[in-house]
Design a protein around this nucleic acid. Structure first.
Lengths: 159, 159
DNA sequence: CAGAGATTGCTGCGTCGCGCAGCGATTGGA
DNA sequence: TCCAATCGCTGCGCGACGCAGCAATCTCTG
C-alpha cells in the first residue's frame, strides 16, 4: 500500500518512529547501566522529576506499571542509593510520600546536560513553526499510546 | 531560561518527548504482557521484522544490548513460542540464522493493526509537509540517541 | 460512636531474565 | 599445519518482579 506519495510518507514516519523508539530503549538501558541502576529506576526518577510534587508509592506503581510490592522494592533501591527520601503523609498516614533528592539527582542531570547540548543543537535546526508541529504530534502520540496501553491492559489475553 | 518564546518551545518539546517516550515504554510493557512475552522479546521481534533478512544471534545481541548468552536464551524463548526458527548458516557453520515465522507473527501484527487504525487517523491530521518535518526530526533524534548510547557505553562509570 | 469494608504500603516466597565465565565447534590467517 | 579469533551454548549466582497475605489507617454507615 505504498503506491501513493501520502502512503509512502506514512510508512516512512512509521518506520522512523519505530527506529527512534528502539534507539531510545537502548539509550535508556545504557544510561541506567552507566548510573548503576535499572531502566525501571531511571524511568521512575524521570517521572518523579517531571511531577509537580512528591508521589506516593501507589502512584509510582501505577505510573510504572508494576505492583505495589515491586514499587516498594523500587523505592527501597532508590532510597538506598540516596536518590529519594521517604516522608510519611500527614493527611493520610497510610501513605508514604517519595521525594527526590536534588543533590543526588544533580549527578543524573549532569549526564543529561552533557548530552543535552547535542539535543539543543538538534532543536535549533528547526523553525518555531516546525517545533510546534513536532510538539503537537508528540502530544497526540502520547495520548494515543496511553489510551492503547489502557486498552491492552483491560483486554483478555490470547495466551 | 524559559523567558523567550524560542526557549519555551524547546522546553515544551523536551517535555512532550519525555512524556511520549515514557508512555511508549508503558505501552510496550502492556503489549508484551498481553502477548505473554517480555519487553525484550517484543523489541527483538520488532528488530527482526524490520531487518531485510535473517539475523544471527550475535547481531541480535548487539542490537538489543545484551550478551550472547542472554541472546541465546532470548532466541530459545522465541523459538519455544513458535515466533522464530533457527537455521544453520551454510557459509559459516558457526553462525545460526534466526528467521521470524510469518504465521506466528501475524498474531502480533493483528494487535498492531487493530491499534494501527488510530495511528493512521493521527497521521491523517497532518499535511504532507508536516509529515516530512516530523519524519526528519525522528531520524535526527534516532541518530542522536544512537550516538549518545555508544558514548555512554564507552565511558567510565561513576559507580 | 462503634464496627465493617476499603485502601495503602510492606514482607516471604517462587519464578525467571540476565551477566559472567568457560566450553566445544568452526573459521581464517601465519 | 597450527594457532588465534569468532560464534553460539551452558552452569552458576544475582536480583527484579508478581503473587498472596499482613498490619495500619482511613472512610462510610447504622
Amino acid at each position: 500500500m505504498t503506491d501513493t506519495p501520502r502512503a509512502r510518507l506514512h510508512d516512512e514516519l512509521s518506520m522512523a518512529s519505530r527506529r527512534y523508539l528502539a534507539a531510545y530503549v537502548l539509550f535508556n538501558q545504557a544510561l541506567a547501566d552507566h548510573l548503576g541502576l535499572h531502566p525501571t529506576d531511571v524511568q521512575c526518577l524521570s517521572l518523579l522529576t517531571a511531577a509537580p510534587g512528591p508521589l506516593t508509592v501507589k502512584q509510582i506503581a501505577e505510573m510504572t506499571g508494576l505492583t505495589t510490592g515491586s514499587a516498594t522494592r523500587l523505592v527501597d533501591r532508590l532510597e538506598r542509593g540516596g536518590y529519594v527520601v521517604r516522608t510519611p503523609d500527614q493527611q493520610d498516614r497510610r501513605r508514604v510520600l517519595v521525594t527526590p533528592v536534588p543533590d543526588r539527582l544533580a549527578r543524573v542531570a549532569a549526564v543529561w546536560d552533557d548530552l543535552g547540548e547535542a539535543w539543543e543543537e538538534l532543536l535549533d535546526e528547526h523553525t518555531e513553526e516546525e517545533l510546534e508541529v513536532i510538539t503537537r504530534h508528540m502530544r497526540r502520540a502520547h495520548d494515543l499510546s496511553h489510551a492503547q496501553m489502557q486498552r491492552l491492559r483491560s483486554r483478555p489475553k490470547p495466551a
